[in-house]
């Protein structure tokens, strides 16, 4: 499988898992189901998977590029969560605590920074799967 497709699909899978857990535990609630699908396809798959993880981190040793993947993913995530908080309102935060956080701005900030993990985990799984595929 070509590398860009591999990175896209891994990030997509991370998105499906994240959104499924978030839906089950009511971490955040989308205005419509279509927005959740768009988020997984565009933000997880295209932006963080193909854009950040593959374009920036696809050709370098993970240990050296991981901080760059994290900071880029987190910056995009913070801007994205901020846009939703102040403009888009595509998803909202229930009153229940999320990892000890109760205010929506704190949840947006924490989730925004956590977006940085998506390209790092995507690149790590992509390397592992390529390694496993090469030794099968």
């Amino acid at each position: 499988m070509p590398d860009p497709v591999r990175y896209f699909l891994i990030a997509l899978a991370l998105g499906v898992v994240s959104e499924t857990i978030a839906r089950a535990l009511r971490f955040w609630i989308y205005r419509s189901a279509a927005l959740a699908v768009l988020n997984v396809l565009l933000m997880f798959g295209l932006v963080q998977g193909l854009g950040v993880a593959w374009l920036i981190g696809g050709h370098r040793a993970l240990v050296s590029i991981a901080p760059v993947l994290f900071m880029t993913g987190a910056l995009i995530g913070v801007v994205y969560e901020g846009l939703n908080e102040f403009r888009l309102r595509a998803w909202s935060w229930p009153d229940a605590s999320l990892l000890g956080l109760t205010r929506s701005i704190d949840k947006a900030a924490a989730v925004g920074a956590a977006w940085g993990l998506v390209p790092v985990v995507t690149a790590a799984i992509a390397r592992l799967s390529a390694f496993a595929g090469g030794h099968a």
Partner: peptide
């Protein structure tokens, strides 16, 4: 890169 990542993320959060 790692300490710069710390600065970049805290800076983005300060902006938000």
């Amino acid at each position: 890169p790692l300490p710069d990542a710390f600065v970049a993320v805290t800076s983005a959060l300060a902006g938000l």
